[in-house]
Amino acid sequence: MAAEAKVDPMHQFTIEPLFGSGNWEIAGYNIAFTNSALWMAISAVALWIFVAGGMKRQLVPGRWQMAVETFTGFIDDLLAANVGKAGKKYVPYIFSLFMFILFANMLGLLPLGVVGLHAFTFTSHFTVTGILAILSFSIVLIVGFWRHGLHFFSLFVPHGTPIWLLWLIPVIELISFLVRPFSLGLRLFVAMMAGHVLLEVLSSFVIDSSNAGAGWGVFIGIPSFILMVAICALEVLVAGIQAYVFALLTSLYINDAENLH
């Protein structure tokens, strides 16, 4: 019975190897095809289907093509606004990043538990968000040093720094610069994990209170359930916003690399 099945809010984040791939290794490193990798693949395929549906290249776009063009236009505008003309060449990367995270967040919210499957939100793992953050940060570093050479270090001395503060400002700027990949990765990971934990905790309230008796179920279960519905809506919003924030911050950092201050 459900009464015995303890609801563990963290269990949803467990990574399990699939298809008996638990022992796959390359050079001693485990590369098991896990549920996490499966959902990455599902997100990638869903994204591919979505964009492929908008490839009809009609002069007068249909709904699907319009939707895809809205997203590419959105990323294009984002880069044009934050980086300028030079931002055009980053559209493929920022688009991939934004859409991949957005699809991952959204697919992770699917209520597949109803049919016995378990959606896995790989963006709630800091190994994943951290890699994406490091990827973005590497691009910033590579572009910065490629375009400006050692002059890129002038990023740490903003315009108008008083001479007598020259010993302090670069240190602060350097720290804020180095914190960027962490804030980028942790923000997404924390936002996604917190939402999922909250939903799970509320669902455990519903189940446990109902099991404790009809009275508890009415007084605690129903309000919790209503709150869950509201938080589900909020989570959909957060899924979009976090993907947007990731893309926006990446484009801001790229702007620093392209144009310095």
């Binding site: 990574i15 490193y29 590369i31 996490s36 190994t127 890699i131």
Partner: peptide, 10 residues
């Protein structure tokens, strides 16, 4: 495995 599959799929 996370890093491996993420890099491949992304």
């Amino acid at each position: 495995s996370q890093i491996f599959w993420l890099l491949i799929i992304f």
